[in-house]
Design a protein around this nucleic acid. Structure first.
Length: 470
RNA sequence: CGGGCUGUAGCGCAGUUUGGUUAGCGCGCUGCGUUCGGGACGCAGAGGUCGGCGGUUCAAAUCCGCCCAGCCCGACCA
């Protein structure tokens, strides 16, 4: 298993280093051979698959269907939308050769798929009866990045990207917000147990080609911000660039209003940085590839069969269960391996337990250990998993709340943003204020109403949540 | 793209200044045994184009030249 015997660097001592060590020692991912690329190992990919399932179900509930568009995009497509090309040009990987020959027209590896998708939307949409068109794809994308960190920023990453077309602006806005709330916010808070702020971006932070960008922002364990998911209103920008028109009920030819939205493997990085502790990862039960590991403390004629029976009972209750009977490896080593991987509950079973018809239940989130009668094991484990989800969320929210302050001046905002979020009236900030923040490495994460709700119309009394971002 | 640094076993490193038998150490790995309730121990093993190419020399991981790759710091970024 882990081939590193060193203890983890404490979070408080060096947070970035702690993060890297958790990713490595929990066997989640490692660097690929090409600079900035990432190999996602089975444990990390297992988490991604579960998260993917949760997001996918919500996306489908919101009415979108999955489809797939090509990895390669003609370079000229990118040129069609002015601000889009301006935003993405520096990040493009361009393929110039194929089959040993120079290509007549270079193709870009998709950095995002608005351009190809909309090329086809233009073909598929003729009538108001074709609307709304709601499509999602799960894919990889590639962007040239200067400085990469596993999961948080990699040259290639996995994500879903949704693309929709609507007959009216109001409908597009409503859908973009619906995705933000019903898909992203819901999955982040209920599945990932990550308390999440929602709002919209300032012009400076807006997606290249969007008229408005909605965002989900989480606070990491060091007080920095991570953008967890975004939903963009594209207005008619791409519709005009790609000629996406439809005949309305009156027979008039009009441009569609569009949205696009995405969430990526970056979420796994956020999960680690929100819930991890000095002993490693702590997984919310819904995303744990193994929710329970039954550990055989010592091999004898009774422990193996007992562990198998316990595992069968737990599986019967619908849980994901692993059995660890590697009794050739010392107990401590194995316990620490599972702890680092963040498995929410361990059930330890040895001769001593069996003699008392019990097992030891160890809960990862607070590392508590308690003996439990075998007959009550399924109930105890299920309760511990439910409690883990609640406690992880509550703990993260309590931490975040202690690191958010309302402030009245730019100076205070910068000070607070050193290790948390500052909430400052937008009127105080202005565009000049945003420039001033940028000089200290601080940015506006999102704009919201003073009560934290979304400002769906142009409103006067908004506040800006500012912080340092990953 | 500017500045600094590093390439020696799967990983982390020593050895290079001052060239000299068979290139070492820790972890990991394999086998056997003793262990096993929070990072076990003993014994025996396996594993190397010393980043690459060329040069100097009786002799190169070590000196010289060129090349390649990676890391860190700056400018840029979901």
């Amino acid at each position: 298993m882990a081939n590193d015997t060193a203890a983890l660097t404490p979070r408080a001592e060096d947070f970035p280093r702690w993060y890297q060590e958790v990713v490595a020692q929990a066997e989640m991912a490692e660097n690929g051979p090409v600079r900035g690329t990432m190999v996602i190992r089975p444990w990390g990919f297992g988490i991604w698959e579960l998260l993917q399932g949760e997001l996918d179900r919500r996306i489908k509930e919101a009415g979108a269907q999955n489809a797939y568009f090509p990895l390669f995009i003609p370079e000229q497509y990118l040129q069609l939308e002015a601000s889009h090309v301006e935003g993405f040009s520096p990040e493009l990987w361009v393929v110039t050769h194929g089959g040993g020959n120079r290509l007549e027209e270079p193709v870009v590896v998709r950095p995002t798929s608005e351009t190809v998708v909309n090329h086809f939307f233009a073909k598929w949409i003729q009538s108001h009866r074709d609307l709304p068109l709601l499509v999602n794809q799960w894919s990889n994308v590639a962007r040239w990045e200067m400085r990469t960190r596993l999961f948080l920023r990699t040259s290639e990453f996995l994500w879903q990207e949704g693309h929709t077309a609507h007959a009216s602006e109001a409908e597009a806005t409503e859908y973009a917000v619906r995705i933000l709330r019903d898909v992203y916010l819901d999955a982040m808070e209920r599945v990932m147990c990550v308390p999440t702020l929602i709002g919209h971006k300032t012009e400076r932070e807006r997606f290249a080609g969007a008229v408005r960008t909605w965002t989900c922002e989480g606070m990491m364990g060091d007080g920095k911000a991570l953008q967890l998911g975004t939903s963009h209103e594209l207005g008619t920008n791409f519709a005009k660039a790609f000629g996406i028109t439809f005949s309305d009920e009156q027979g008039a030819l009009r441009h569609v209003f569009q949205t696009s939205w995405g969430a990526s493997t970056r979420l796994i990085g956020g999960l680690i940085m929100v819930h991890g502790d000095d002993f490693g990862l702590r997984l919310p039960p819904a995303l744990a590839p193994s929710q329970v590991v039954v550990m055989v403390v010592r091999a004898d004629e009774s422990t193996g069969p007992a562990a198998a029976a316990i595992a069968a009972d737990l599986r019967g209750a619908g849980l994901r269960v692993s059995i660890d009977e590697r009794t050739g490896t010392s107990f401590g080593r194995r316990a620490i391996d599972w702890e680092r991987k963040g498995v929410p509950v361990r059930v330890e079973i040895g001769p001593r337990d069996l003699a008392q018809d019990s097992a030891v239940v160890v809960v990862r989130h607070d590392r508590s250990k308690n003996p439990v009668r075998l007959g009550g094991l399924v109930g105890a484990v299920t309760a511990a998993l439910d409690e883990t989800a609640e406690r992880l969320f509550a703990e993260a929210r309590a931490f975040r709340d202690t690191r958010i302050s309302e402030v009245a001046t730019l100076g205070e905002a910068i000070e607070v943003a050193a290790d948390g979020f500052a909430v400052v009236p937008l009127a105080t900030l202005g565009e000049a204020g945003e420039d001033a923040l940028a000089e200290s490495g601080v940015s506006v994460r999102c704009l919201q109403r003073p009560d934290g709700s979304l400002a769906e119309e142009a409103e006067e009394e908004l506040v800006a949540v500012v912080g340092k971002a990953y």
